[in-house]
């Protein structure tokens, strides 16, 4: 297990998540793509911390990434609920004009 190996796996997770975030139409599936991307960032941050500078302060960065993941999840679910209530849809293509 090396830093390069961890980063390549993290890059693969990020790339798969990017594909999902760009290609999916359902809001919840787009959220899943974003979650995978943050998952890759989390793994890369953990690898950087362990292999480059295993100082306790570096772990705080991982906590921030986890917090960002939580915020993304909560806001995504709230927007999905709002979309469903207002438009009776969960598709991104049917909610392009936010002003309507």
């Amino acid at each position: 297990m090396t830093l390069e190996a961890v980063l390549v796996v993290a890059a693969a997770l990020f790339a798969v998540g990017l594909y999902g975030a760009l290609s999916q139409q359902v809001v919840v599936m787009v959220m899943m793509g974003l979650e995978l991307m943050i998952n890759g960032v989390l793994l890369a941050a953990a690898g950087f911390w362990w292999f480059l500078a295993p100082d306790p302060s570096g772990q705080v960065l991982l906590l921030v990434v986890l917090a960002a993941m939580t915020v993304e999840m909560a806001m995504g679910f709230a927007v999905a609920t709002l979309l469903h209530r207002r438009r009776q849809t969960d598709m991104t293509d049917m909610s392009q004009e936010l002003s309507q």
Binding site: L3, E4, L7, A11, Y19, S23, Q25
Partner: peptide
């Protein structure tokens, strides 16, 4: 339920090559 699959695959492969190459 997907759209723009080819663009998404291109962006995804490009991101992976860039990130993995840098790593």
């Amino acid at each position: 339920m997907t759209h723009g699959k080819k663009t998404a695959i291109g962006a995804s492969v490009g991101a992976f090559v860039l990130l993995a190459g840098g790593a």
